[in-house]
C-alpha cells in the first residue's frame, strides 16, 4: 500500500499533488502496491473526482475540528494513524513546504529514513530512489530499506496523468488520536499579503527574469513593461534581492521559487546552478546577456547577445508596433 498525502485549494487538488499521485501510481504499478490518499481538506466532489481520475479507490479523511488550523505535528499524527491502520509500506507527498514538513514529522515518529525531492525510482526491491541534491545540480541515489519508506516527490518530476481506469473514490472518515502537544504549533492567524504572493510567479506561463545586469533598482522599467506586454510575471536572481532591488518573493532558484513556465526570458542572469535549480523546468528559455559564454546562454534554447537595456526596449517597441499593427 502507498499512502499519498494530498493538498487542495479552491479549485480542487493542487497540480503538485496530482503530480505526486501520478508518481505514486507508477511506483505502485512497479512494486505491486495500490495507492490510497489522505485528504485533510473537506473532500469535495471535485477532489473525489480528481482522485478517481488518478485511480485512487479509497481516500482517508481525518475529521477533527482541531485539524482545521494547520500544524505539521497534528496533521502528521493523523497521517500516522492512517499509515498504521492501513499497514502502508510507502508514504509519499509532494515536496511542497507542508509536504516536506509533515513527512519529516512522520519519519521522525516512525523512526525511519526519509528521502526529500525524489525524481525517479531506481529499483523497488530494495527501494532505491533518485533525489535532487545541491538544489538539483546533482542527483543522489538513496536506499530506503526501512519497513516504511517516506518520500517527497520533487515538483515537476512528472506530468500529472489520468489512470487508464478511473475509479469511484470512496471516502473513509477517520478520527485521529491527537495530543494537546501536537496542537501548540498550529497556525494562529493568517494575514493576506498580496505583495508577497508567489503563486503568480510559480503559475505564470511567461516569466521575465532579471539579474545583476539590470544594474540597479531603477533598471527594471523596461523589464516590467515586457512582463506586462507578455502578461507574465517578473522573476529575479538572488543578487537582485540581496541588493534590495526587488523583494525576495520574486526570487527564482534554490532558496526562492521554482518555476515551470512555457517561456523564461532571463535577462542579465549568469545562470549559477542555484538559479538554474529554479528555472530548469521552463519549456523554452530565451537568454539575453552581454556574455555569449554565460552558462545561462549556453544552456538556453535561444539567446540574444547584447545589453538588456538596449535589447528589451527594442523588443517592447516591436511588440507594441505589431499589436497596433
Amino acid at each position: 500500500m502507498i499512502i499519498v498525502l494530498v493538498e487542495a485549494n479552491a479549485d480542487g487538488l493542487t497540480l503538485f499533488s496530482r503530480e505526486a499521485l501520478t508518481f505514486a501510481r507508477a511506483l505502485g504499478d512497479r512494486a505491486g502496491h495500490a495507492v490510497q490518499a489522505v485528504v485533510f481538506d473537506e473532500p469535495t466532489d471535485a477532489i473525489r473526482q480528481q482522485l478517481g481520475e488518478q485511480g485512487v479507490a479509497l481516500a482517508h479523511h481525518p475529521d477533527d475540528p482541531r485539524l482545521s488550523d494547520y500544524a505539521g505535528a497534528s496533521w502528521a499524527a493523523a497521517a500516522v494513524d492512517v499509515v498504521r491502520s492501513s499497514a502502508a509500506e510507502i508514504v509519499l507527498a509532494s515536496g511542497t513546504p507542508r509536504g516536506n514538513e509533515i513527512l519529516a514529522h512522520i519519519a521522525a515518529r516512525l523512526d525511519v529514513r526519509m528521502a526529500a525531492n525524489v525524481v525517479q525510482v531506481e529499483s523497488t526491491d530494495p527501494l532505491v530512489v533518485t533525489r535532487q541534491v545541491v538544489g538539483g545540480a546533482a542527483l543522489e541515489d538513496m536506499r530506503l530499506d526501512d519497513p516504511i519508506a517516506v518520500l517527497s516527490v520533487a515538483g515537476h518530476a512528472c506530468d500529472p496523468q489520468a489512470a487508464s481506469v478511473a475509479m469511484t473514490t470512496e471516502v473513509a472518515t477517520v478520527s485521529p488520536t491527537l495530543d494537546e502537544r501536537d496542537l501548540v504549533t498550529r497556525v494562529m492567524q493568517v494575514e493576506q499579503t498580496q505583495a508577497e504572493d508567489t503563486s503568480a510567479l510559480t503559475g505564470a506561463r511567461v516569466v521575465v527574469g532579471a539579474g545583476r545586469g539590470a544594474g540597479g533598482a531603477e533598471g527594471f522599467t523596461d523589464l516590467l513593461e515586457l512582463t506586462e506586454l507578455l502578461g507574465g510575471a517578473l522573476g529575479v536572481s538572488r543578487v537582485v534581492t540581496s541588493l534590495g532591488w526587488r523583494p525576495h518573493s520574486e526570487q527564482v532558484g534554490q532558496t526562492g521559487s521554482r518555476i515551470a513556465p512555457d517561456l523564461y526570458i532571463p535577462c542579465g542572469i549568469s545562470g549559477a546552478i542555484q538559479h538554474w535549480a529554479g528555472c530548469q523546468s521552463a519549456k523554452t528559455i530565451l537568454a539575453i546577456n552581454t556574455d555569449p559564454e554565460a552558462p545561462m546562454v549556453t544552456r538556453a534554447h535561444y539567446a540574444v547577445i547584447g545589453d538588456l537595456h538596449e535589447v528589451v526596449p527594442a523588443i517592447n517597441k516591436e511588440l507594441r508596433s505589431r499589436r497596433t499593427g
Binding site: 498550529r186 497556525v187 492567524q189 494575514e191 493576506q192
Partner: peptide, 9 residues
C-alpha cells in the same frame, strides 16, 4: 508564508 497568506504562530 503559507498557501493562503502569511501564517502567524
Amino acid at each position: 508564508d503559507g498557501p493562503d497568506g502569511t501564517e502567524i504562530f
